[in-house]
């Protein structure tokens, strides 16, 4: 066997579909028929999954920790919202693509500057960049609506056929389609040689540099792609809610999406799914009962995850499965 065919075999094995990978999609479709009244909420869950997936590319695969990913979500949301409110660009699919495109451009440019830095400096720079953008949007209220939010956002029926509805049915399917396409792209990406080089950079960037990987270029590339996906999530958010507020750029949003990804399991693609569903469902139930109780619970969960369950929810499944395999040979 030549090294080349060996490598091909390896990548083929890596990207082979497992039986359980259909599960999230079956559940997502089933949710529509079992809980039709919760589809507006379901849409937000799907959007959060897209956003968390984009963060997983950067944090989970490339190992770059950022506290400012809401910047790209917000750029996407404002792009879609502003072209609709000011330019009358109300065709939803092209407005969404535009959001992804603009966010990706912003991601490539800011990434090219930010990714020259490391550690605490990078952490502070990503955070400060997102907050600066938020303040910028706040100050330019004649275009962004400022503190009161952007109003007058509205869209034509999807494909000219499906009307926006109050129950969120149309946007549930629309968001699921976007999530599916994004997921396919991300899955191909992380299982490709490019994805492997990202994991290598995460594990030891000096060694990757030494064996000839253009580390900085790879990081900027994945950062830009990730920003574009975050922008798609933001655009969907603006379309499904038909309004945009400064909150889309907030530090709280950057922090929450990181928490969601960690709780689900970082660097494993499906962590974004598990984390978003678990977090948003719990938040919806518990925050209604008592906000303090919820806040304390999230804090405790985070501390416990970091101390005892580094792999998040999916990591716990993995460990249980291993225990089970050992118990029943």
């Amino acid at each position: 066997m030549t090294p080349d065919t060996k490598a091909r075999g390896y990548f083929a094995r890596r990207s082979r579909l497992k039986w359980w990978e259909g599960l999230p999609w079956v559940l997502a479709v089933a949710a529509f028929f079992v809980l039709p009244d919760y589809m507006a909420f379901g849409t937000q869950v799907l959007i959060t999954i897209i956003f968390a997936l984009s963060l997983d590319l950067v944090v989970g695969f490339a190992g770059v920790v950022t506290l400012g990913h809401a910047a790209y979500f917000g750029v996407g949301a404002y792009t879609t919202g502003m072209v609709s409110a000011h330019l009358g660009w109300t065709e939803p699919i092209s407005a969404l693509l535009l959001a992804g495109f603009v966010a990706a451009i912003v991601g490539f440019i800011s990434g090219a500057v930010l990714l020259r830095y490391h550690g605490l400096t990078l952490l502070m720079l990503t955070l400060a960049t997102a907050i600066c953008l938020q303040e910028f949007a706040n100050v330019n209220e004649d275009v962004t609506g400022g503190f009161d939010g952007l109003t007058g956002v509205g869209f034509e029926p999807l494909l000219g056929l499906f009307e926006y509805d109050l129950w969120g049915h149309t946007y549930y399917w629309y968001s699921m389609a976007v999530l599916f396409l994004v997921f396919v792209v991300v899955r191909i990406m992380v299982n490709s040689p490019f994805g492997m080089s990202l994991i290598g950079i995460r594990e030891n960037s000096a060694r990757m540099d030494a064996i000839g990987t253009p580390v900085y270029r790879r990081l900027v590339t994945v950062y830009g792609v990730s920003a574009g996906i975050a922008g798609l999530a933001g655009g969907l958010f603006a379309e499904s809610n038909a309004y945009v507020t400064l909150d889309v750029l907030s530090f709280a949003r950057s922090g929450t999406i990181l928490i969601i990804l960690i709780l689900g399991g970082v660097g494993r693609l499906y962590g974004a799914f598990a984390g978003a569903v678990a977090y948003l469902v719990l938040e919806d139930e518990l925050a209604k009962m008592s906000p303090e109780f919820w806040e304390f619970g999230v804090g405790l969960l985070l501390v416990l995850t970091v101390m005892f369950a580094r792999g998040g929810l999916l990591g716990i499944f993995d460990r249980l499965r291993k225990l089970f395999d050992r118990a029943a040979p």
Binding site: I259, E295, F296, G299, L301, L302
Partner: peptide, 12 residues
């Protein structure tokens, strides 16, 4: 993340 968790718990 540990710190964010602690901050949340303290605030609550």
């Amino acid at each position: 993340l540990l710190c964010i968790g602690l901050v949340f718990m303290a605030s609550a």
